[in-house]
Amino acid sequence: MNLNLQWTWFHRLGSPRWFYQKTQRWLPWLSLIMLSLLALGLVWGLAFAPQDAKQGNSFRIIYVHVPASVVALAGYYLMAIAGAVGLIWRIKLSYMLMRSAAPIGAALTFVALVTGAIWGKPTWGAYWVWDARITSMLILLFLYLGVMALRHAYSSNEAADKASAILGLVGMVNVPIIYKSVDWWQTLHQPATIKFTGAPSMHPDMFMPLVVMIAGFYMFYAVTLILFTRIEILRREYRSSWVKQLVENN
């Protein structure tokens, strides 16, 4: 059997045209699920979840802080892996996904840092502390911004994509450091509430809306990544006949 045959599905998956047409149909459904999850989670978390015995109502910030952080970290893996796939297989769509993931990840990291700072004031007594978790999260923001900035440093898309992918891969080591920072160092930041093994250290009445919010943020990530990638496709494929047809029919 021809070895190359096994990889054809992989390359078809990497077709910008296929992606653009499929996501056209997915977007309304994904947006609907995203909106319902976020609306449910926001109302539940803000108005219906009980307050915390020690922190009072300021703990409600967890409903935006934790989902933003979780998705910002997962999004970095997605960006780095997309970059690696682009480097190895030269799949165009993969580079487009990497490029689109950077601004979304940067914005979510920014949200995690800002909401964390706002939460820190009433509970810890300070907006900002040079704590291991917070510092490594700040490095994540700089890595995202670096991947975004590298594009402007090169005149050709190809060279910029390669450089961005390498920076993304090198920065990937920061992600497990962020995860484990609360266990490795004496930090002010509390350890993870949601654990891979064992029950979460949170009452179910407070935990359920958090799960809804995290799911909502993942859907939000999917929707925005698709929207950004579609723009990237239009920008890079404007010479192809299917894009011209698409624009003329519009």
């Binding site: 009980p50 307050q51 915390d52 015995a53 020690k54 922190q55 703990f59 967890i62 509970t123 810890w124 007594g125 300070a126 502390v129 002010l188 509390q190 350890p191 993870a192 509430t193 250290s201 949170m202 009452h203 009445d205 407070m206 935990f207």
Partner: peptide, 12 residues
Amino acid sequence: VLAKHDENYTPP
């Protein structure tokens, strides 16, 4: 002086 809190959340 900063207060450190744990990862446990419980209603009052």
